[in-house]
């Protein structure tokens, strides 16, 4: 039997290695050439992140708790949720995870804001253009299924270790739900309501702001909820490229076999996740109830 039937005929080790090397070289020289420029572009983001983290750390713990509880009440009008928020945050503080939690809160908040600022307009654009939708849908599928470490490599090559690559990785991983659900929400707005706004001479902008976005808002909120959940799930992985927060002790616990430390910090991530989830969901329900 000829050899190509028993073992898969590959392109040849030599050729593949040189292709890979050429690709890596090209990217490396690109990052050497433009790394600083790109880093400078992202500087404002870094300032925002650092400023917000310092703000959370410098503010007395009771003030932070009061602010989060007030925000929770404003969004949900639910005393039960406020009580649950209070208990969660007090527990985190008592177990000496306050600082790490604040750092995580900072990066999650900033990542979520960026995700919304990018994702909602992209979703709107996708709802307007079927062509854009056919292009973006597979791109987003790749973003969500590609192993996270794979796109960490070029980001780290470009930015080194630190907060910015962390945020970028979180945003890439967490942005698809917002885009998808904004697009879906706008496309689901009933045809007759759109026809009515046309019949009254509404411009595209009026239609978007007065009709499509408000009616899509419950769906958009569901997307934001998903995004926050996915961002939180990235906390531990982001700590591998130097993002400080609740992920770091978990990483430490894995390498040193500190079971209890791992459980405590993991539980804090879960508690934050539940908190955000209930808050955004209750807010979404309130939006729906208005209808």
């Amino acid at each position: 039997m000829p050899e190509w039937l028993t073992s898969f005929p590959t392109l040849g080790e030599q050729l593949l290695r040189s292709v890979r090397r050429a690709f890596d070289e090209a990217y490396r020289s690109f990052s050497r050439e433009y790394g600083e420029v790109i880093e400078a572009i992202f500087d404002p983001l870094l300032y925002l992140l650092v400023w917000f983290e310092r703000l959370l750390l410098a503010t007395p713990w009771w003030l932070v708790i009061a602010a989060v509880c007030a925000l929770c009440y404003a969004a949900t009008r639910s005393r039960k949720l406020v009580a649950w928020t209070l208990v969660t945050l007090l527990g985190i503080g008592l177990l000496d995870m306050w600082e790490d939690t604040m750092r995580t809160l900072a990066i999650i908040s900033v990542s979520t804001l960026i995700t919304i600022a990018l994702g909602v307009p992209l979703g709107i654009a996708m709802s307007w253009s079927d062509r854009l939708q056919t292009v973006f849908t597979p791109v987003m599928d790749v973003m969500q299924t590609m192993p996270i470490f794979v796109y960490l490599i070029p980001v780290v090559m470009l930015f080194g270790l630190g907060k910015i690559p962390g945020v970028i990785a979180v945003v890439i991983y967490a942005i698809p739900p917002v885009i998808r659900l904004t697009n879906l929400g706008i496309r689901l707005v009933p045809e007759d309501v759109l026809e009515a706004s046309d019949a009254f001479g509404a411009s595209r902008r009026d239609k978007l702001i007065q009709v499509q976005l408000p009616l899509a808002l419950p769906n958009i909120m569901a997307g934001i909820n998903q995004t926050i959940m996915m961002a939180l799930s990235m906390v531990v992985i982001a700590s591998m490229i130097g993002v400080r927060g609740l992920g770091q002790p978990v990483l430490e616990a894995v390498t040193n076999q500190y079971f209890a430390l791992g459980i405590l910090n993991g539980a804090a991530v879960v508690a934050l996740a539940i908190l955000f989830d209930r808050m955004t969901q209750a807010y979404g329900r309130r939006l729906r109830a208005i209808k």
């Binding site: 009933p190 007759d192 309501v193 026809e195 009515a196 019949a199 009254f200 001479g201 408000p214």
Partner: peptide
């Protein structure tokens, strides 16, 4: 001009009401 015509020259009532639910 079509928008302005619809804004003030002609208006419409629909079978399924087509009100803005929000």
């Amino acid at each position: 001009r079509l928008r302005r015509f619809r804004q003030s020259g002609i208006s419409m009532v629909f079978q399924r009401f087509a009100l803005f639910p929000h």
